[in-house]
Amino acid sequence: MLGIAAAVLFIVAFLIHVTETSTDVVFGPTSLMLLGLAFLALHLAGVGTGWAARGRGRGRRR
């Protein structure tokens, strides 16, 4: 989920940069890019993936 959020932030930052839209300093292309990189780093670190359900797996058959 964080990977998708990072992709959306990169797209928004790119569109703001390309169209040269005047925005607030907080929502500038550079700050959105850095936020997207932080989300991408969290995604790659495994944060937000949820817990994996543990199944019985393949045990010995009797």
Rank of each mutant, 00 (worst) to 15 (best):
T21A: 14
T21C: 13
A6Y: 01
T19Y: 07
L40E: 05
L42K: 04
T30R: 07
I4G: 08
T19S: 12
V18H: 13
A7N: 11
G3A: 03
S22Q: 08
R60V: 13
T49Q: 15
S22E: 10
V12A: 06
I4T: 12
I16K: 04
A5S: 09
A45K: 08
V47A: 12
G50M: 12
A41R: 05
A5F: 03
R54L: 15
L9Y: 03
G57T: 08
L44R: 12
T30S: 04
A5Q: 05
R62C: 02
A6D: 00
V47K: 06
A38P: 05
V12P: 00
V18P: 01
D24F: 02
V12M: 06
A45G: 13
I16Y: 00
M33S: 01
G59F: 02
R56K: 15
R58A: 12
G3M: 02
A45N: 07
H17Y: 08
V25H: 04
L40M: 14
G57V: 07
G36S: 15
G59A: 10
M1H: 08
T49N: 11
T49F: 09
M33C: 03
G50V: 06
A41W: 06
L40N: 03
A13L: 08
R61V: 13
G46S: 07
W51A: 14
R60E: 13
A45T: 13
G3F: 04
D24K: 01
H17R: 11
V25P: 01
F27K: 05
V26T: 10
